[in-house]
Amino acid sequence: MSSAAAKKVRPKYLSLPAILFQIRLPVAGWVSILHRVSGALLVFPFAAWLLYVLDVSLASEQGFARIKDHYLQLPVVKAAALIFIWALCHHFCAGIRYLLIDVQVGVDLPAARYSGAAVIVAGLLLTAFFGARLW
């Protein structure tokens, strides 16, 4: 091992500013970091939010009407729902890509780049589709 290699600090951790501004993240890297961001958002706050909506809507007819006719019509709630839909759709599509890569489908670089871009686009298209149905 050369002395230059020995001096490098490993493992190397990249901070968020480093990911955003210092290095050029390849498209698969963007899929990966967005998979983490969307996953974290789905755990908190969106899972708690979903449970709250399920709880109130199942508890009583008044609760159901309040959620459907009032709560889900609020602009701020619709905006939050849009972020939730994106997080879910991106996480879903990226997850399917990882499952396929696990079984050796699309492992080589051109295919992985193509599927990575496809996941980001599909996540946005599905968000537009379900968002349009929400509005």
């Binding site: 951790y13 983490r36 996953g39 974290a40 755990v43 899972a47």
Partner: peptide
């Protein structure tokens, strides 16, 4: 499934970013 899945995922994120 969500609880187990999320535990593995969040633990990975915490191990990577929170030292």
């Amino acid at each position: 499934s969500l609880a187990w899945h999320a535990w593995v995922g969040v633990r990975d994120i915490l191990m990577d970013y929170i030292h």
